[in-house]
C-alpha cells in the first residue's frame, strides 16, 4: 500500500472535522452556564437538571421509547418474513407488487407517507395515538429490516438448511435451529435500525400522532423552531452519548462474534481434513 498522500490526509481531516465539529460544539455548549447559547459563561450542568424536571420532555421520551420498542419488534418479525418470502419463495402471485412495496417506502418522502397514513386512519375512524404511531412506524421500518435481512439471506448457504431437513428437522425446526442463528446478526441490526428510525422520525409522527402521544422529536422540533436552547443541547448530548455507547458496544460484540465464527469455521475445516 502506498503511503497516504498529503491530499488524502487533508481530505479526511477536513471531512471528519466537518462531520464531527457541529456535534462536539453541541456537547460542549450543553455545559454552558449562560442561557445565551452562543456565549460561554462557565461550566454548569444545570440544563441537565432542568431537563430532568421538565415533565413534558419526560412524557414525550416515554412515548417515543414505547413506540420505538413495539414498532421495531413487530417490524423485525414482519421484515424477516418478507425477506424470507422474497428470497426463498421463488415466483408467487403478486411478487412484483410485493417487492415494489418493500422498496417504495425507502425512497418515499416522509411527508407523503405521513399524509397517506393519516388519511387512512381518518377514513377508517381510528383515533390518533400510540397505536397509529406504532402502525405507521412498523410499516416503513419493516422495509428497512427486510432489506438488511435479505442481503444476508442471499449469501446464505442453502445446503446447511437442507442438511438439517435430511437429518429429520421440520421446516420450522430447521429455521429455528439453523437459519435463525446464522442470520441473527442481520436480524439484530435490522431491529436496531428500525428502533433508531422510529426514535428519529419527526414527519410521519407529526401526521400520525394525537395530542396525547407527542413524541420527543415533535417536542424538540416545536421548541427549536423558536431558536437554539441550552436544554435541547443537553438533551442532544444525552442522545448522542447513548448512540456512541451503543455503536461502540455493537461493534465490539460483532468483532468478537466474527472472531468466534472464524475460529469455528477453521475448526470445522480442520475436522473435515482430518
Amino acid at each position: 500500500m502506498r503511503r497516504m498522500s498529503g491530499f488524502n490526509m487533508i481530505a479526511l481531516t477536513l471531512g471528519f472535522a466537518f462531520l464531527y465539529i457541529p456535534m462536539v460544539i453541541l456537547v460542549i455548549y450543553s455545559f454552558n452556564e449562560s442561557k445565551l447559547v452562543t456565549v460561554w459563561a462557565g461550566f454548569s450542568t444545570k440544563w441537565y437538571g432542568s431537563l430532568a424536571q421538565n415533565q413534558q420532555f419526560l412524557d414525550a421520551a416515554w412515548v417515543t421509547l414505547r413506540v420505538a420498542f413495539f414498532s421495531s419488534t413487530i417490524a423485525t418479525v414482519l421484515g424477516t418474513m418478507a425477506a424470507y418470502a422474497l428470497i426463498r419463495s421463488g415466483r408467487f402471485l403478486g411478487r412484483t407488487l410485493f417487492s415494489g412495496m418493500i422498496y417504495a417506502p425507502l425512497v418515499m418522502p416522509d411527508v407523503i407517507t405521513g399524509l397517506a397514513l393519516l388519511l387512512l386512519f381518518i377514513s377508517i375512524g381510528l383515533d390518533r395515538g400510540i397505536l397509529t404511531l406504532v402502525l405507521a412506524h412498523t410499516t416503513f421500518a419493516m422495509c428497512y429490516v427486510s432489506v438488511v435481512v435479505s442481503s444476508r439471506l442471499m449469501t446464505f448457504d442453502l445446503s446447511l438448511e437442507e442438511a438439517a431437513r435430511d437429518l429429520g428437522c421440520t421446516a420450522a425446526e430447521a429455521f429455528r435451529l439453523v437459519t435463525l442463528p446464522i442470520i441473527a446478526p442481520a436480524v439484530i441490526s435490522g431491529w436496531l435500525l428500525a428502533f433508531t428510525l422510529s426514535l428519529d422520525d419527526l414527519v410521519i409522527a407529526s401526521f400520525t400522532s394525537g395530542p396525547s402521544s407527542t413524541t420527543l422529536p415533535i417536542k424538540i422540533f416545536s421548541s427549536v423552531r423558536l431558536g437554539v436552547s441550552p436544554e435541547i443541547n443537553a438533551l442532544s448530548t444525552i442522545m448522542i452519548g447513548i448512540v456512541a455507547v451503543g455503536v461502540l458496544a455493537a461493534s465490539l460484540v460483532s468483532k468478537r462474534s466474527l472472531v468466534k465464527r472464524q475460529a469455528d469455521e477453521a475448526a470445522a475445516v480442520r475436522a473435515e481434513a482430518a
Binding site: 418474513m81 418478507a82 424470507y84 419463495s89 412495496m101 407523503i112 377514513s123 402502525l135
Partner: peptide, 20 residues
C-alpha cells in the same frame, strides 16, 4: 410467511396511496 407482510403492506402502504 408471505401473506402476513404482504397484507400488512397492502393495507398500510398501498391503500393509503389510493386514498391520497
Amino acid at each position: 410467511v408471505y401473506l402476513i407482510p404482504f397484507t400488512w403492506l397492502l393495507v398500510l402502504f398501498l391503500v393509503p396511496f389510493l386514498i391520497v
